[in-house]
C-alpha cells in the first residue's frame, strides 16, 4: 500500500525580515528548508514503511529549486519523490495548492492502493493549516487533523486508528482508509540521514510532473484558481513591553517581582 507524504520547501522564516519601507518580505539570501512540520509527516510515513512495509512517495509543489528538499526525503528513506512544478501552478493559495496536490495523489493512487496521505499540521510560511484538509476534501477521503499518535493501521479492515490532540484532552478516532492525516510536531522525532543514504540520494531520480503531465483545468490552479487575494503584507505593530530590573539582579528577586506584577494584574487567580 502507498503512503503519500506532502512536503513543502519554505524559507527559513526565522531569518526572514520585513522590508520596513515596502512592507514586503526580504527573501534574498534566506536559506530554504523543509517545512519543519513536514519533517514529522515524513518521519511518520517512514515509520509506517518500517512497520507495515508501505511504500512512501513524497510529493512537493514548488519551483525547480525545491528538488533539494525532495532529495533530502530520499536520503531519509522515501521510495519515490515527485516534484510538481509548472508556471501554471505559481501564485497559488491553499485552495489552488490542494487542487494540484490532490490531483497528484489521485494519479499515484491509480497505480497502487492508497492508504494514507500524510501532511504536516501547517507550514511555517503560510501557517494556514488548510492544505491537508483541502486535499482530503478534494479526494473525498477521511480527514484526521491534529494527530499526535497513529495507534494502528488495520490493513485487513482498511481503517486507521489515531489519537488527536484537542484542547485539554485527547480523542481516539478510527477512520476508513484512505485517510489524510495532518500531524503535530510532537508525534515523533525525525530520523537523521546516514551517509550512504545521502550519497544515494545525491543522484537519485526526482520525477518532475508539470501540467502537461497532470492536465488540470488551468482555471482551478495557480493564481487563477486562487480565491485569496493579497492586499498587503506588513509586520503587526508590536506594543513594546517594559524591561524590569537588569541582568545583575538575583534570579530570586526577578522571579519575586514578576510574581508580584502578575498578582497585581490579576493573572494568577486560580
Amino acid at each position: 500500500m502507498l503512503v503519500v507524504a506532502c512536503v513543502k520547501q519554505v524559507p527559513d522564516t526565522t531569518q526572514v525580515k520585513v522590508d520596513p519601507v515596502t512592507g514586503t518580505l526580504i527573501r534574498e539570501g534566506v536559506p530554504f528548508i523543509m517545512n519543519p512540520y513536514d519533517t514529522h509527516a515524513l518521519e511518520e510515513s517512514l515509520r509506517l514503511k518500517d512497520k507495515y512495509g508501505f511504500r512512501v512517495a513524497v510529493i512537493s509543489m514548488g519551483p525547480p529549486t525545491a528538488e533539494v528538499t525532495l532529495r533530502k526525503t530520499q536520503a531519509l528513506g522515501a521510495d519515490e519523490a515527485i516534484l510538481l512544478s509548472d508556471r501554471a501552478f505559481g501564485g497559488a493559495d491553499t485552495l489552488a495548492t490542494s487542487m494540484v496536490l490532490a490531483e497528484a495523489v489521485r494519479k499515484l493512487a491509480e497505480k497502487e492502493e492508497l492508504a494514507i496521505i500524510m501532511c504536516g499540521r501547517q507550514t511555517i510560511d503560510g501557517d494556514t493549516a488548510q492544505v491537508g484538509p483541502g486535499i482530503a476534501s478534494r479526494l473525498g477521503c477521511s480527514q484526521l487533523t491534529l494527530v499526535d499518535r497513529i495507534e494502528e493501521v488495520d490493513v485487513k479492515n482498511k481503517q486507521v486508528k489515531v489519537r488527536r490532540k484537542l484542547e485539554g484532552r485527547h480523542e481516539i478516532v478510527v477512520a476508513p482508509l484512505p485517510a489524510m492525516i495532518a500531524v503535530l510536531r510532537e508525534i515523533n522525532n525525525p530520523r537523521y540521514p546516514t551517509v550512504p543514504m545521502r550519497l544515494m540520494a545525491e543522484d537519485a531520480d526526482i520525477a518532475l510532473w508539470d501540467n502537461k503531465e497532470m492536465n488540470i483545468d488551468e482555471q482551478t490552479i495557480g493564481l487563477k484558481g486562487s480565491a485569496t487575494q493579497v492586499r498587503k503584507i506588513f509586520s503587526p505593530e508590536r506594543t513594546k513591553g517594559q524591561i524590569l530590573g537588569d541582568e545583575t539582579d538575583k534570579p530570586e528577586d526577578v522571579a519575586r517581582s514578576l510574581i508580584d506584577k502578575m498578582k497585581e494584574k490579576d493573572l494568577l487567580s486560580l
Partner: peptide, 16 residues
C-alpha cells in the same frame, strides 16, 4: 554510529 547508523544521543540531533 553517526554516518552508517544515524545513532547518537538525542541531544545531538538538534546540534546536527
Amino acid at each position: 554510529l553517526v554516518e552508517m547508523k544515524a545513532k547518537f544521543p538525542e541531544e545531538l540531533l538538534t546540534l546536527f
